[in-house]
Structures are given as C-alpha cells and as structure tokens.
C-alpha cells in the first residue's frame, strides 16, 4: 500500500522536471487529498456526523422505550438540563476533579521528570516502570484503588495513621472523591512526566551552567531558567491532561458508580442515554458536554496563551 504512494509521489516529482511548477503543485495537491481523504472521512463519520445528529435529536422529546412518542420540543431539553441542579453539581465535580488532578500531576510529574532527567544508571528500568501505570487499563486501576481503599479488604486504612481501621472511604462524598482522584492521578502522572521530561531535555545545559556560575541558587535556576524555557511543553501537557481529565468516566463508573453525588458530567450523560434510553435529553447533554470541552480548551489556550502550532513547530 505504501509503495503505491511512493510511486505516485515519484510520478508527481518526475513531472516536475518537465512541467511548470504550478502543474507540480497541482498534482501534489491532488495526491495529498487522495491520501488524506479516507482517514479524514472516517474521523468525521464517527464524530462530526453523530454530533450533528445529537444536535438534531436534542430538539426532541425522544425515549427509546417509547420511540413512537417522539415529538419536537425545541430547546426544552436544554432548559431542563441547565435548570437542573444535578447538571451543575456534576459539572462542578468534573471541574474540581480536573483542577485538582492536573495540579497534582503537574507537580509530581515535574518532580519525576527532574529525577529521570538526572538519573544515569537504571534509566531503562525507571522508564519501563513509569510506562506501566500509563499502559494499565483505567478500569483495572479503578479496581486496584477501590480495593486498596476498601475497609474490609484494603491496605490504605492500616497504612495511614490518621484514619481508623474501619473508615469507609466510599461512605461519603469527600473521601469517595479522594479515592477517585487517587486512581486518576496514579494512572496519568507518568504520561505528564514523560511530556515534561521531553521539555526538560530542550533546556540548554549551557544556560543552566551560566546561571550557576553567576551564583543563581537552585530555586532561582528552576524559576528563572528551567520553567520559562520549557513553558511550551508544560502548556501542551496541561492542555492535553486537563481535557482528558474533564472526560473522566471509567474511574467513577468502576469505583462508585456515581454514588454519594460523585457523578461527573460524562457519567450523567452516559446514564441518561445508555441506562435510561432518554435519547432526547441525553443528546442535549452530549451537546452541552461537547460545548463545555470547547469552553475549557478555549479558556486554557487563552489563559496560558498556548500556541499549539508553535509547540509542534507546525506551519
């Protein structure tokens, strides 16, 4: 399959020798469009098309349990969702999880990256183990931490000095959220640290040396040299992780199933659509979820002035 591309590309190039440049660029254009058409179509088929359909369905009162009663109700589903305190509570949960987990991941991930950057021996062992949480299925991570926090079969209670042995972590809201965030932070910190490590590798050693010679302390070097120079890497890592954290679903599904008010906005949407077959209101929630992700992305990009094209050195 790939050989065909190369040959076609060469055909395009062969032409260049004889024909004027515009011809060449036209044929290059055509070839490129042929190559990206199928992947692009597939990406849009499963995202843009269903999203438009969700937009359409969200205007109806439509339940799969009574499909014949489907009727057009305009924006009522949105009104219902946006005036329901549950929607705002779940959005609040999601935003809280996003901010807390990303903050922890950034700090711990940066510490890990510093260690990995310095370490000379056992580099392979460290990098191999750091990939394990990244690779472990989220559901498995959720189970592992749920059982770890369990008061009948876990070990967390006996290891933590400030909680009683029979403390039930999943008995109330705050401790349940801590357990959920522990699982999320454990699994995704390695990814963060690898991104930061790559950023750290771009900070020039000469500059650090110069700062050292000039008498800068460790903290000064960190704040004045290292962090400003890896700003792009940090911002990309934060953006990716924040949007990923905003979609949190697996851990909540596995660990609490939304009990004690620990639902996220993704979980609420899932429950409406798949468990209760409410496609109308479910679609409205889908649209709102999508819009809220856009808003979050926009805020992060504006707030930190992330330039993805710059970070990727893309045209």
């Amino acid at each position: 399959m790939t050989s065909a591309i190369a040959n076609e590309a060469k055909a395009g190039k062969g032409k260049k020798a004889k024909a004027p440049t515009s011809d060449r660029s036209r044929s290059e254009n055509r070839l490129a469009l042929k190559l990206v058409a199928l992947p692009l179509a597939l990406m849009l088929l499963v995202t843009a098309f269903p999203m438009l359909r969700a937009l359409y369905l969200s205007l109806f009162s439509y339940s799969l349990t009574a499909p014949d009663d489907r009727k057009f109700i305009g924006l009522d589903n949105y009104v219902t969702a946006l005036t329901d305190s549950l929607f705002w509570k779940d959005t609040g949960n999601t935003v809280m999880i996003m901010i807390i987990t990303v903050a922890f991941e950034l700090v711990i991930g940066f510490a890990f990256a510093m260690v990995m950057h310095k370490v000379i021996f056992a580099r392979g062992v460290i990098r191999t183990s750091i990939l394990i949480p990244y690779g472990v299925i989220t559901v498995v991570s959720g189970f592992a931490w749920q059982f770890a926090f369990s008061n009948t079969n876990g070990f967390v209670n006996s290891w933590l000095p400030f909680v009683g042995d029979d403390f039930n972590w999943f008995g109330q809201y705050h401790s349940s959220m801590i357990a959920i965030m522990a699982s999320e932070i454990w699994k995704t910190t390695p990814f963060m640290s690898l991104l930061l490590l790559a950023g750290l590798a771009q900070v020039s050693e000469d500059m650090l040396e110069a700062a050292k010679v000039d008498g800068a302390t460790w903290w000064q070097r960190l704040y004045k040299v290292i962090l400003p120079n890896m700003r792009a890497a940090i911002m990309v890592a934060v953006l990716f992780r924040a949007l990923d954290a905003y979609r949190i679903f697996d851990n909540i599904f596995v660990m609490t199933a939304g009990a004690n008010g620990t639902e996220s906005i993704s979980f609420l949407t899932y429950r409406q659509v798949i468990e209760q077959f409410q496609l109308g209101i479910g679609s409205a929630l889908s649209v709102l979820l999508f819009l809220s992700v856009l808003v979050v992305a926009f805020i992060i990009v504006k707030l930190f002035r992330v330039n993805l094209a710059d970070a990727r050195q893309e045209g």
Partner: peptide, 26 residues
C-alpha cells in the same frame, strides 16, 4: 506534500483527540 487543507486535517485530528467520547455514545 504541500497541499491546501493540511491545517484542516491537523486541526480536525487535534479536536477529535480531545473529543468527549461519552457525548458520542448516544
């Protein structure tokens, strides 16, 4: 290759990478 729409393809890919998957299941 140089072609028109390169940026569109990359942007689409980026948006999809950040897409909230749950909003599609319905």
């Amino acid at each position: 290759l140089e072609f028109r729409g390169k940026k569109f393809v990359l942007t689409t890919a980026l948006v999809i990478a950040m897409f909230p998957v749950v909003s599609l299941v319905g």
